[in-house]
């Protein structure tokens, strides 16, 4: 999925966004047109709401604590691959991890309405949609938009 940039090797240039990227890019974005003949499709609204569900959790803090506590291991030269929980995703997940909530939401909604659909992702989806027991944490207003025109 990832292709080296034409200009250098440090920045990643995914040729096509993974599902997590796509969800982050398009959900709740784009023009809403008020057309008299608009067809309402149940499911979309639910999906949109689900994508924003962010739950604070003590468990998250405990995982973070564990991650820093184990940092010594890394300092003594051992690879930290396999660190449990939260921070693990940071190094390997890229944007894939940040929208897990959304993905789970999508999957759940689709699964509810249309049994079976949520289970038949292709291999790529499988990887991205792999459910992880990572609790969402911190709820901030979602309206923060900095625009500098």
């Amino acid at each position: 999925m990832t292709v080296a940039s034409q200009s250098g090797q440090y920045m990643e240039r995914p040729s096509s966004g993974g599902l997590a990227d796509v969800v982050g890019l398009i959900l709740d974005k784009g023009l809403v047109v008020d057309v008299y003949a608009r067809v309402s499709l149940v499911g979309i609204e639910i999906l949109t709401i689900d994508a924003r569900v962010v739950v604070a959790s003590v468990d998250t803090y405990l995982r973070f604590a564990e991650a820093v506590n184990r940092l010594d291991i890394a300092r003594s030269g051992t690879e930290t691959r396999g660190l449990p929980g939260l921070m693990e995703e940071v190094s390997e997940g890229g944007a894939q991890s940040k929208t897990k909530g959304a993905l789970e939401g999508v999957k759940e909604v689709v699964g509810n309405i249309l049994p079976g659909v949520g289970d038949e992702e292709d291999e790529e989806d499988e990887e991205e949609l792999e459910p992880e027991e990572r609790p969402r944490q911190r709820s901030r207003p979602t309206s923060r938009k900095d625009r500098g025109r």
């Binding site: 995703e89 940040k98 944490q137 309206s143 500098g148 025109r149």
Partner: peptide
């Protein structure tokens, strides 16, 4: 990067406290 763009937008913070779009 803003000087090279006509406009910028920051996505709302996500559940991942170590990432930003």
């Amino acid at each position: 990067l803003a000087p090279l763009a006509a406009s910028t937008a920051t996505s709302p913070p996500t559940a991942d406290e170590a990432a930003v779009d």
